[in-house]
Design a protein around this nucleic acid. Sequence first.
DNA 1: TTTCTGACAGTTT
DNA 2: AAAACTGCCAGAA
Length: 100
Amino acid sequence: MNNQLDKAYRIYTVIAAIPYGNVISYGDVARLAGLPRGARLVGWVLKKLPEETQLPWHRVVNAQGKLISHNQQQRQRLLSEGITFKSNGHVDLKLYGWIP
DNA sequence: TTTCTGACAGTTT
DNA sequence: AAAACTGCCAGAA
């Protein structure tokens, strides 16, 4: 079946599998979840995550390496995983892009 | 039902 | 280089 829960579930699975110390873009999450153009859906799903989720949502950044604006916590978590930032405050996707 | 809005991306101006 | 436009999917109004 192809209901929204299946799609959300596939997205969860992909995000849960992002290795420690790596980041991935929304578009790549969608692609790996079988939703080639579902980047916005990934954002929608992540927005709905509960506070206490164990999903490594902080490893998902946009295609420019920019973090979401509303959450300071993301940068902190990435730093604690050893991820470095460029002078413009973006993560370097070339270094940390996740190739499964 | 139609329209608008996102924690986005890719292409075209 | 930067802004605009288009595609995508689900939800809210």
